[in-house]
Amino acid sequence: MGDIAKSVLGGAWTLIVGWILPTGLNLAVCFLTVAPTLRHTAPVAHLWPRTGAGTTLLLLCASLLLGLVLSALQTPLYRILEGYSLWPSWAYERGCVRQRAAKQRLADRIALLRLERRARTAAPLAAADTESLARLRADPRLAATAGRDRRRTAAQRALLGERLSRYPADDDQIAPTLLGNAIRRLEEYGYDRFRLDTQVLWNELTGTAPEQIRRQAELSRTNADFFVALLYGHAALAAVALAALAAPDPPVAVLLGTAAALVLLLPVWYRCAVNATDEWAAAVRALVNTGRKPLAEALGVVLPHRLADERRMWRLLSTLHRRPYHERAAALDAYRVTLPGTDQPNGPPTG
């Protein structure tokens, strides 16, 4: 009974903090700035409570209902911000080109700092490193940032690596937005390292992983959900504030100031959502690293000792779950657990 209660409370926490709380904050701003103008219009006047307690109850109920709706719509809401939905093909392609170039610039800045440090403190650089250092120093794109980067402290330089880590390792996985890349890097982690497609085997992976790791993976995206919900609420509230200008005798300064402040905060919440994915990515990394063995046991296979064999096994398993059966999937027999009473036991290849 205690485990059930903890599970329910944990799920409620992600829903309340991730979606209902930011919805309530947005509605509170709406009640303070926009609602006084709209409450005297005919459609709203009939529904507006007559007492302060009724207004509070309306705020709570609206926060709960709209928070539940946003939670149900979280996948399409995220996909818009990631650049996968409602983006024209030309905008998507241009965004991918821009993000790929930004990733390369970050990688070049970090490589330049590393090579310069090695040139100062270590033995003479190899010919290939010397050539790379000369190329990076001559790159006009790095000229504007090289001086500032050299003056950075060790902690500030580490932040460059943190920004680079928010991109997927494979350039073919680049998305057109910062948030899309920050989420894509955690989605591709298992496949890049072990050929374990976590998008296909997510339910199996979370169902067999250690409880603490699984809970961390569930709770870690709450902060990102909070800022995404706040961002969409601000955008909707800014539109409502501008629409309220059509009401009779509106307070123009208040409505325009509210809309302007909300619009200015949109990029702030977007950046916060991107930064919040760091904890989410760390939790997914831990889930993959520690959950592979129990997942393999649950799927009836033996985790090979050699990394190359393990990558081949996960690729076969991911393909088996993602596509219709093909005879090539029979190669999984080499990794399956020995069954009692069989004449020819199976096991992972050892050669």
Results as ranks from 00 to 15, higher is better:
P176E: 02
P176T: 04
L178N: 09
L179Q: 11
L179C: 14
G180Y: 03
R184D: 07
R184F: 10
R185G: 05
L186T: 06
E187S: 04
E187L: 12
E188A: 09
Y189D: 01
Y191A: 01
Y191Q: 01
D192K: 06
D192G: 10
D192R: 11
D192V: 11
D192Q: 14
F194Y: 15
R195C: 06
L196D: 02
L196R: 05
L196Q: 04
T198E: 11
V200A: 13
L201Q: 07
L201H: 11
W202Y: 14
N203Y: 12
L205T: 05
T206Q: 12
T206K: 15
G207S: 12
A209N: 05
P210L: 15
P210V: 12
Q212F: 14
I213P: 09
I213Y: 10
I213E: 12
R215L: 14
Q216Y: 13
A217Q: 09
A217K: 06
A217G: 10
L219D: 00
L219M: 13
S220L: 03
S220N: 01
S220C: 08
R221M: 01
R221I: 02
T222E: 00
N223I: 00
A224W: 01
A224H: 01
A224Y: 03
A224L: 00
F226T: 03
F226W: 02
F227D: 00
A229K: 02
L231K: 03
Y232S: 09
A236N: 05
A239L: 14
A239K: 08
A241W: 02
A241D: 04
A241M: 05
L242H: 14
A244F: 07
A244L: 08
L245Q: 11
L245P: 11
A246E: 13
P248S: 15
P248F: 07
D249V: 06
D249P: 15
P250R: 06
V252Y: 08
A253R: 08
A253K: 07
G257R: 11
G257P: 03
A260L: 10
A260T: 12
A260M: 02
L262V: 00
L262E: 06
V263D: 08
V263S: 06
L264P: 01
L264G: 04
L265V: 09
L266E: 12
L266F: 07
Y270F: 13
Y270M: 09
Y270S: 04
R271H: 12
C272K: 10
A273W: 02
V274L: 09
V274Y: 04
T277I: 07
D278I: 10
E279V: 08
W280E: 01
W280C: 03
W280Q: 05
A281D: 05
A281N: 00
A283K: 00
V284G: 00
L287T: 08
L287D: 02
V288P: 01
N289Y: 06
N289V: 02
T290I: 08
T290P: 00
R292K: 00
R292Q: 14
R292C: 03
K293E: 05
K293H: 13
K293C: 04
P294N: 12
P294S: 15
P294G: 08
L295H: 08
L295V: 12
A296F: 10
E297P: 10
E297S: 13
A298G: 10
L299F: 11
L299Y: 13
L303M: 14
P304Y: 07
